[in-house]
Design a protein around this nucleic acid. Structure first.
Length: 524
RNA sequence: GGCCCCGUCGUCUAGUGGUUAGGACACAGCCCUUUCAAGGCUGCGACGCGGGUUCGAGUCCCGUCGGGGUCACCA
């Protein structure tokens, strides 16, 4: 059997470090066995689709050096590799299951379902997932109504038994069938859900090992059942531990930079990031003194990596360690290569340099002043007050001026910055005019109850570390989304996050502001 | 809450019945040094808890506690 693995990112946002992690492991396993590593784009949710996101995935993976053998941009024998281009295949396969009695048409609407769930909740009845109502429909009636809007659901076993999947790392994982419910396979818009599309594609692409994150374990039984309903061989399942924040929760952009592009733009070397990712769950080749060789290349991994020996505890994404690994690779570079890296990093993108000229040139009298005016376009920002930067890690430090407005609690500033970050994250448009419109517009009311000048100063300081900069919105545009979001996250890390209670209160106040803005709008 | 996954220093990990429980990051001290880094040396620091099994348990079993994930016409 040829080993064929895949990653299947969704183009819904920035390429994620988790995608890089899964990509590394999947690629290494495929290469170790002389097999193929494929890239599939899971874009079946057109409501969350983000233009440009797919290209960003390509860029990020290629930057890391994770090259795929088959994929949307390079084709292959099993194409197309973009799920939105395969809808006819999914429809056909969904119908196959209806015909064989493994699936059925369901005419319940989302609203009806929500109402029934609420009703069940009120009566303290158990109603999770779907109650199976449309199972009772006469198949012939259902066929006659096929023109009406409906979904196709999978018929899960209802007996007292268990469905068990074999996990490469965890052994058998049993789930009582009572826990299963009839999941949607084909949505009313004609697109498949992840479950249908991925099972069908994994089969059609002859994927031998499904290596994916632990969060997929609960849908393992459904996928297993689907493979079986089709009479297909079930691939090897392997659920990798989830990368965690410092507090052990699933890694999130609120608490960590999660975009691969952030690491590229922040000046990390791809081989360093790959090395660091390889450390998670594995640790590197064993050394004679009983330790691990922690600095290793992908070639080293190809030689020594053993998927079966992975450590299952969710590893914390430790930026300090990443920095250490990166520092190692940086120092290893020959002066010429190092200089080239610096050149690429600073001026490798002429468009970036040229874009900031209009912002800085009016503020300069000699070229020697360039870095005084433009430093933050090229350099990380430290949000701690300069006098306190040498203080011990645990000690309370003063922050750079302007990040927290006078009279505002640091926890509340954290919250405002998080709102700001969320709002910017959701923006597709990123020109100065659009940014200004978004941040001054009615939607911005929800961000905080601060005076605009305080809000904009906090944002300015967060992205630049200074109180005086070229125009804020122009700076945001030129810096670009990933740098801005990264710096906002950096700023939030030096601020204390509010506790649960405080957070609830802040959210309530925000919701009140939103509601207030809405009524004001309707009055006018 | 139901179901499921996981549990060695603060963090990443080594360890598969007998080890002074090893290495790395971080942290502290010392050395080197005009400064700051880097580098070298030293130190701090862990088997969540309780029962078994065994001559012997971090390693096996049970329980418990803790953490996490998941419960959508999102992936």
């Amino acid at each position: 059997m040829t080993v064929r693995t895949r990653i299947a990112p969704s183009p819904t946002g920035d390429p994620h470090v988790g995608t890089g992690y899964m990509g590394l492991v999947n690629m290494v396993l495929a290469r170790q066995h002389g097999g193929q590593f494929l890239l599939r784009i899971d874009d079946t949710d057109r409501t969350r689709y983000r233009a440009g996101s797919e290209q960003a995935v390509f860029d990020a993976l290629r930057w890391l050096g994770l090259e795929w053998d088959e994929g949307p941009d390079k084709g292959g024998p099993c194409g197309p590799y973009r799920q939105s281009e395969r809808t006819a295949i999914y429809l056909e396969h969904a119908l196959m299951l209806v015909k064989s009695g493994h699936a059925y048409r369901c005419f319940c609407t989302s609203d009806e379902l929500a109402a029934r769930r609420a009703e069940a909740l009120a009566e303290k009845r158990d109603f999770r997932g779907y109650d199976g109502r449309c199972r009772a429909l006469d198949p012939e009636d259902a066929e006659r109504r096929a023109g009406e809007p409906h979904v196709i659901r999978f018929k899960c076993p209802t007996d007292e038994g268990k469905t068990v999947i074999q996990d490469l790392l965890r052994g058998p994982i049993e789930t009582p069938n009572a826990e299963l419910d009839d999941k949607v396979l084909l949505k009313s818009d004609g697109f498949p859900t992840y479950h249908l599309a991925s099972v069908v594609d994994d089969h059609l692409f002859r994927i031998s090992h499904i290596i994916r994150a632990e969060e997929w374990i609960p849908s393992g039984p459904l996928h297993q059942l689907l493979f079986e309903a089709y009479g297909w061989d079930v691939p090897v399942f392997c659920h990798m531990p989830l990368i965690r924040n410092a507090d052990k929760s699933k890694i999130s952009k609120r608490k960590n930079p999660t975009s691969l592009l952030y690491y590229r733009d922040a000046g990390y070397l791809p081989q360093a990031l790959l090395n660091f990712l390889g450390l998670l769950g594995w640790g590197g080749p064993k050394t004679a003194d009983g330790g691990n060789q922690e600095i290793f290349s992908v070639d080293d991994m190809l030689q020594h990596f053993k998927l079966e020996t992975l450590s299952l505890g969710g590893p914390v994404f430790d930026l300090a360690k990443l920095r250490h690994v990166n520092a190692h690779y940086l120092r290893e570079l020959q002066p010429q290569a190092f200089a080239q890296q610096v050149r690429d990093y600073l001026v490798g993108d002429p468009a970036y340099l040229e874009a900031l000229v209009p912002l800085v040139s009016p503020r300069m009298e000699t070229l020697g002043q360039f870095l005084h005016v433009a430093d933050f376009f090229f350099s990380d920002v430290d949000h701690v007050h300069p006098d306190d930067r040498k203080l011990k890690p645990g000690s309370v430090k003063r922050l750079v001026e302007g990040l927290v407005p006078a009279g505002v609690e640091p926890e509340d500033a954290w919250f405002t910055l998080s709102q700001l970050s969320g709002a910017l994250e959701r923006l597709d448009a990123w020109t100065a005019a659009e940014l200004e419109q978004a941040l001054r517009g009615p939607g911005a009311v929800a961000l905080s109850d601060w005076k605009p000048r305080d809000l904009f100063m906090a944002l300015r300081v967060a992205i630049s570390g200074r109180k005086e900069t070229p125009g804020l919105f122009e700076c945001l545009e030129v810096l670009g989304k990933s740098r801005v979001l990264g710096r906002l996250a950096d700023a939030m890390r030096v601020l204390p996050a509010p506790g649960k209670k405080r957070l609830k209160k802040l959210e309530k106040a925000r919701d009140a502001r939103i509601a207030g803005a809405a009524t004001e709008a309707s009055d006018a």
